[in-house]
Amino acid sequence: MHSEFPSLLGAGLILLFIFYLGFLSLKIKLPNVILYILLGIILADFVHESELLHFASEIGIVLLFFLLGLEFNVKRLGGIAKKIWPSGLLDVFLSLGVTTGIALLFNLDLFSSFLIGGLAYATSSSITAKLLDDRGRMANTETEFMLAILIFEDLVAPIVVAILFGVSTGESFASSTFLLLVGKIIGLTVLAIVLGKTVFKRFERFLDRIDDEDFKIALLVGIALAYGGLALYLGLSEVLGAFLAGMMLAEIGRIEKVEQTVFPVRDLMLPTFFIYFGTTIELGDGIPMVGLLAAVLVWSVIAKILLGVLGGPMYGLSRRVSLRAGLSLCARGEFSVVIASVATGVIKVFSGIYILIAAFIGMFLFEQASAITNKVYGKPVKKKKNLKVPGN
């Protein structure tokens, strides 16, 4: 009789938990993401550093952003890039810069302060995108602005991580390192554009000739994972690589042909990302630096709301829509976990508690964004249609 717990049994139990929690979330009207993260925290001691769970979670998050990328062809992405950079820089200042300053005021050293600034900077791409999809807000006016901010943050966050890793290992972050990172991002983007305009130009016809759905799954998931993996290999975010992979295929005429094949795989794998995310959160034995924790939590919410209120109009959004966008960008997640891995001792425990609370606050504000906006600006007035009466 085997003494070790079989991985296959563990995988089966996790899938059953996912089913039950998904069903429970409908009954109690709570986002299933919250329940998945709580399950991860509970299971942390049993599945900590599980390669199987980690791999499944990577597939889920890559396919989520692959499908998002399908909505943005090169022409549309170029137009968004021109509009988003002022709001993106405002985000860097408010979330990264000011938070670093707050930590310095609490007498932390520069490295620890910058690390906490990094924790508070990047919105959780996975949580935000999942909630947008679950709540049917993908077609909303503010969604393009929100996704553009997420991608901008995914470009800046690797640079922040590189600085922290360099300093923590005693290396200096030279300007050449920064230029190399920027070069990798540009190179990966240009390669995606070239492949989209050449190799994948007639991809729709090729897909039509494949009758077996199994082969389509292997092909499309393989493209998403390969480009996401290439981004990881270059020291960038797999989320960025997956988004660019989707953008490559966005040039085809009917993206629903790709979506209907990939959706089932994404829906099966994505919950494992949030469970794995929960297992990575370090809670420790108590809450250290309560004053700083409260200050950073409050400011990190204010910073994202200000990003929406001030940055939304820069992007061309109305004040109402801008506020709703800001309230929907408050969750912290995967990049914060990566940055927290650099921390040690008290700062590491602080980071875990901050990420957990910020994720829950962000999800709550996302759910209440429309209601809060209506309280501030009043309920939107439906436009009356001028009906022509026959005979008039």
Rank of each mutant, 00 (worst) to 15 (best):
G316E: 01
L317N: 01
L317D: 00
L317F: 00
S318I: 01
S318W: 01
S318D: 12
S318T: 14
R319W: 12
R319T: 07
R319M: 13
R319E: 13
R319H: 13
R320C: 01
R320K: 11
V321D: 15
V321C: 08
V321R: 14
V321L: 07
V321Q: 12
S322T: 07
S322C: 07
L323M: 12
L323P: 06
L323V: 09
R324I: 05
R324G: 08
R324L: 03
R324V: 01
G326L: 03
L327K: 05
L327H: 01
S328Y: 02
S328N: 06
S328M: 14
S328H: 09
S328F: 05
S328R: 07
L329R: 04
L329C: 04
L329Q: 11
L329A: 08
C330Q: 01
C330Y: 00
A331E: 07
G333Y: 08
G333R: 07
G333C: 11
G333N: 10
E334W: 01
F335E: 04
F335S: 07
F335D: 02
F335P: 04
S336H: 03
S336A: 15
V337A: 05
V337N: 04
V338T: 12
I339K: 04
I339G: 10
I339Q: 12
A340G: 04
A340D: 04
S341P: 00
V342I: 13
V342R: 02
V342Q: 10
A343Q: 13
A343R: 12
T344D: 13
T344R: 14
G345Y: 10
G345V: 09
V346K: 14
V346D: 14
V346E: 15
I347M: 11
I347F: 07
I347N: 10
I347C: 09
K348R: 15
V349F: 04
V349D: 12
V349S: 08
F350I: 14
F350M: 13
S351A: 15
S351R: 09
S351Y: 06
G352V: 08
G352N: 08
G352R: 10
G352L: 03
I353D: 10
I353T: 11
I353F: 01
Y354S: 12
Y354A: 11
Y354H: 13
L356Q: 03
L356H: 03
L356Y: 02
I357V: 15
A358K: 03
A359Q: 06
A359W: 11
A359H: 11
F360P: 04
I361P: 06
I361W: 05
G362A: 10
M363W: 06
M363S: 05
M363A: 07
M363G: 06
F364M: 14
L365P: 00
L365K: 03
L365I: 07
F366G: 02
E367M: 15
Q368E: 15
Q368G: 02
Q368V: 10
A369P: 05
A369C: 11
A369H: 09
A369T: 06
A369I: 03
A369N: 11
S370K: 13
S370P: 00
S370E: 13
A371I: 10
A371F: 10
A371D: 11
A371P: 00
A371C: 00
A371Y: 05
I372C: 08
T373N: 08
T373M: 08
K375P: 00
K375Y: 06
V376S: 04
V376G: 04
